[in-house]
Amino acid sequence: MSHDLQEIDTDVLGVDLPRQDRFYRQLYLIRRFEQKLLELFTNNMLAGTTHTSQGQEANAVAIMEALKLDRDMVWSNHRCHGHFLSYCGQSYRLFAEILGRRTGACGGRGGSQHLHWRNFYSSGIQGGFAAAAVGAALAEKDKGAISCIFMGDGTMGEGSVYEALNFASLLSAPVLFVVEDNGIAQTTPKELGVAGSITDRARAFGIDCHHLASTDADEIFATVSPIVDQIRTTGRPAWLHLETVRLGPHSKGDDTRDEAFVAELQKRDPLTVYRDRVGDPGALETWCDDHIAQVLDLALKDDVACAS
């Protein structure tokens, strides 16, 4: 793949905007991007599956802001679009990938769950990349890079996570382990899937543990930023338990939760929380709406991926 296709799109990420405008731009971009995906599914224009991050956008936006995107490595999971968009802003390549186009980020091979761009990797296997995130962090430690791996409360059931924690602590790997705890794994509530404390899980491995219950991008950034600095300075791993909300279905139309319960969660919508902080949210929204319409139109015209 040629170099120009492996860029971070600083324009889409709003790198030149003031931080709060940039945050709102990205929050809104991820939300609209994923709403568009669900719309495409409803209209039978999209095959396969997708897992949207509606409600969790602030995690992606704030954590990417705290990382050094020119060197740090990001390891994501099935719910990866928000992470990917905030990592590189390549909305066109992501649409094309999910639509199965040759021009997709992975040429239509990986689809929604298996993305790679620069130092970004995602896997559809829960906890599958946890150990790889540790190995990569060790390999790049002398370059001042760290690994950040995103997991969910459901991932806490995977033994691979605990092997990775043990390795990370024993070998002093600079890794930020993030648990995006949205309280439900597909349809299984946390109470039925996770025993004990998520926050304290890494403490027994000698890893610093942090907890935050928030959907506020500013608050998350203020919490994550010093943790990232500490990981880089000490070369040691850290664990962050982020309590968040899942506003949409696990995948597409498989939300078994009570409507009133989800309506209550809407009060913590990271976009609602943030909208009042920017001077002209409408202008940022319009930019994103136009951008998404434009790149989706482009991607839809691209050749579909096939073997020959």
Binding site: G128, A132, G135, A139, S160, A164, N166, F167, L170
Partner: peptide, 25 residues
């Protein structure tokens, strides 16, 4: 040379991460 805990999945995964970042493992 890294001696590892008894974690076969973990050690292969750590090796994979290193290999993805250019090392021969």
């Amino acid at each position: 040379v890294i001696t590892t805990p008894i974690s076969e999945a973990g050690l292969v995964g750590v090796g994979l991460g290193m290999a993805l970042r250019g090392r021969t493992v």
